[in-house]
């Protein structure tokens, strides 16, 4: 059964980079462009992992993280921060609010892929795309 990741970021380019990175694997990537849209999709789609940016319009990542952790439907979904706002204080704040990991931008495919098995409970193996 394929895993599902929700990428919440105001940059479509980040969504494209994540989708390109995960293309060889059996992982579905769904996307949202701000925190509010991300909350809605998290409740609708029940992803296995949420990758969340910090600085976004409408609702920022920190507020979205708090709301995700408040909701009974989403509180158990692991949330991994992927943000350019990577100062020590921001990282500590996000981790204290319930994020399981903080990856600073810029990021490469290795840093993303190496973090996934732990939170998706799977062994990443490239699948043949026909």
């Amino acid at each position: 059964m394929s895993k599902k990741i929700l990428s919440i970021d105001d940059s479509k380019m980040v969504h494209m980079v994540i989708a390109r990175t995960l293309k060889p694997y059996d992982i579905e990537v769904i996307t949202a462009l701000n925190g509010q849209e991300g909350l809605d999709k998290a409740h609708q789609e029940h992803p296995d992992l949420i990758v969340l940016d910090m600085t976004m319009p409408v609702m920022d990542g920190y507020e979205a993280l708090l709301k995700l952790k408040e909701s009974p439907q989403t509180k158990d979904i692991p949330v991994m921060m992927l943000s350019a706002d990577g100062g020590t204080a921001s990282m500590e704040k996000a981790l204290q609010a319930g994020a399981v990991k903080f990856i600073s931008k810029p990021f490469n495919s290795d840093s993303l892929l190496s973090a996934l098995p732990e939170f998706l409970a799977l062994e990443l193996r490239a699948v043949e795309v026909v």
Binding site: S11, M13, T55, A84, D85, G86, G87
Partner: peptide, 23 residues
């Protein structure tokens, strides 16, 4: 798409600056 890339690259560069300033 090009605008979005430049926005994101700028965000990452200034995000690094912000991290250093905060620290």
């Amino acid at each position: 798409m090009v605008n979005d890339v430049i926005a994101e690259l700028s965000n990452m560069i200034v995000g690094f600056v912000k991290s250093q300033l905060c620290d």
